[in-house]
Each structure stands twice: as C-alpha cells, then as structure tokens.
C-alpha cells in the first residue's frame, strides 16, 4: 500500500511521469549509440557538465537574473501606469493602443543590437529590452481587467457616494487582479528570455554570453546545461508569480476547490 499523497501532488503525477519517460528515452538513445555523443549529449552528461561548470553558471545566472528582475519590475510599473492612464482617459486609449500593438510586432532580435549600439554593452540595453517585452502583457491584462468591471458594480459604489479614486481602489484594482496575474505570468517568462537574447547579441556577462562562448567551443553538453538552467529559471519565476497570485487572491482557491468537487 502506497502512502496517500496530497491532492495537488497527485494531480501533477502524470506530468512528472511524462518528463521522466522523455529523459529515459533520451538517455537510451545516447547509450545505444544511435546518435554520436558529440552531437547529442546524454542527460547524464548534461548533468555532469552542469555540476563541473556550476561556479561559472552561477556567476552568469546572477547577472541574467538581475537584469530580468530589474527589467520586470520596471516593466510592471510602466504597464500599470499605461493601463491606468488609458483606462481613465478614452482619448489616450485611442492614441496609444495601436502604438502598443505595433511595438509588439517588432522582433526582439531586431531591436536588441540597436539598443546595444545606443546604450553600450553594459546592463542598460538588457534592462530596456526586458522592459519592452514585459510591460505589454501587463498593460493589456490590466486594461482588460479595468474595462471588464461590471458597470452595475460601479453604479452600486457610486450610489454609496464613492468617488473616482474609491471606485478605482475598491473596485477596479481588485477586480483586475486575475487578468493582471495572467499578464504577469507571461511577462515573467518573457523577462528571462528577453535578458538572455539581449546578452546573446552583445554583452560581457550573463547566461546569453555564456551560451555564445560554449557554442563557439562546440561544448554541446554545456549548451544543454545552460538551456535547462534557463528553463528552470523561467519555471521558478512563474511558480513565484503563482505563489504571489494565491497570496493576493485567496478567494480564488475556494472557487477552484468548489469546481474540482463538482
């Protein structure tokens, strides 16, 4: 008889099993010699590379993390300001919404070199790029949330004598939280990718720079190690957002429980 696992862990079991099977197949393919090991390292080799190169990875990870975190924070702040302004003034919405959409059609790889030319090889262009890719999902999420407020709820608060600021604070902001967090989760994932791409295209340190170095050395095992590290980092950041989300919206957990029991 196996010990009964908590509900949430049990729900994740199929996913974990899927990843495990994938890794096992990969290992078998490498061990059997189907693919030469200099082209595709086995998972075990990747882990070995990860361990031996840990100090260097750690050092570069800190740089990337710093850029991503700083960029994400600024991006969220910018997104918030944009959303509030565009929600408050219809004219601003009409002027800026199309521009916002256009900024998102420009490929990141195209702006990154420009930013390097303008701002140099230091941290600034990386942070700016992260801001550019993260503010958008936050702005759109918040705007949708603000605009989705039930007009009757606004009427109710007005009938209670609430002013604009009170309606914003007690109604619009909390109402938009779910959409805000959807946007934030996407932004969090983008922030790491944005920082890495930007480093890749010119810089002195960070996981992106590390990647270009090991690529030039044809160190496939190290390539894979850093790829996994970046994935893990994105996942960790998204988990952090998820945790924050549950902290900010405890009432949602109740709703979910109800739905699952139905």
């Amino acid at each position: 008889m196996i010990r009964k696992l908590p509900n949430t862990t049990r729900a994740k079991l199929p996913g974990i099993a899927g990843v495990a099977v994938l890794l096992a197949v990969w290992q078998l393919v490498c061990v059997s010699g189907l693919v030469p090991s200099y082209m595709l390292p086995s998972p075990v080799q990747v882990v070995t590379a990860f361990v031996t190169d840990a100090p260097s990875l750690w050092e570069n990870l800190l740089i990337t993390l710093q850029e991503a975190a700083l960029g994400l924070c600024i991006g969220v702040a910018v997104g918030f300001v944009f959303a509030v302004a565009m929600d408050a003034f219809e004219l601003l919405y009409k002027i800026f919404y199309p521009i916002l959409i256009i900024t998102q059609t420009i490929p990141t790889v195209a702006i990154a070199p420009l930013l390097v030319l303008w701002f140099g090889y230091e941290m600034t262009p990386k942070v700016i790029l992260v801001v550019l890719v993260t503010f958008f999902p936050v702005t759109v999420g918040l705007l949708d949330g603000f605009r989705g407020v039930d007009p009757d709820a606004v009427g109710l608060l007005r009938s209670m004598g609430a002013g604009r600021w009170q309606i914003f604070r007690h109604l619009k902001c909390p109402w938009a939280l779910p959409q805000f967090f959807s946007g934030l989760r996407i932004a969090a994932a983008y922030s790491i990718v944005g920082a890495v791409i930007s480093e890749w295209l010119g810089g002195f340190g960070g996981l992106g720079v590390y990647m270009t170095r090991v690529k030039k050395a044809f160190a496939f095992d190290k390539m894979f190690a850093v790829i996994f590290l970046i994935s893990a980092l994105s996942l960790a950041l998204m988990a952090l957002v998820g945790w924050l989300e549950r902290r900010c919206m405890p009432y949602r957990c109740v709703d979910e429980k109800k739905r699952r029991n139905k």
């Binding site: 039930d150 009757d152 709820a153 009427g155 109710l156 608060l157 007005r158 009938s159 209670m160 004598g161 609430a162 009170q166 007690h170 109604l171 909390p174 109402w175 939280l177 919206m249 009432y251 709703d255």
Partner: peptide
C-alpha cells in the same frame, strides 16, 4: 448619489472581499 441606499438587481457582492468586508463597504467608503 450617496444619500439613499440602493440594492441593484444582482447581489453584487465583491468576490474578493469577505462577507464582513462586503457588508461594511459603505461604511469604509
């Protein structure tokens, strides 16, 4: 507005406030 109590067709309890905070909302405002 702000003089007469008005209960609209829907209950409009705000999902993110506990019952006590929903009920006390007009006082807090």
């Amino acid at each position: 507005p702000g003089r007469i109590s008005y209960m609209l067709q829907k209950d409009l309890l705000l999902p993110y406030r506990t019952i006590e905070d929903n009920v006390a909302l007009p006082l807090m405002l």
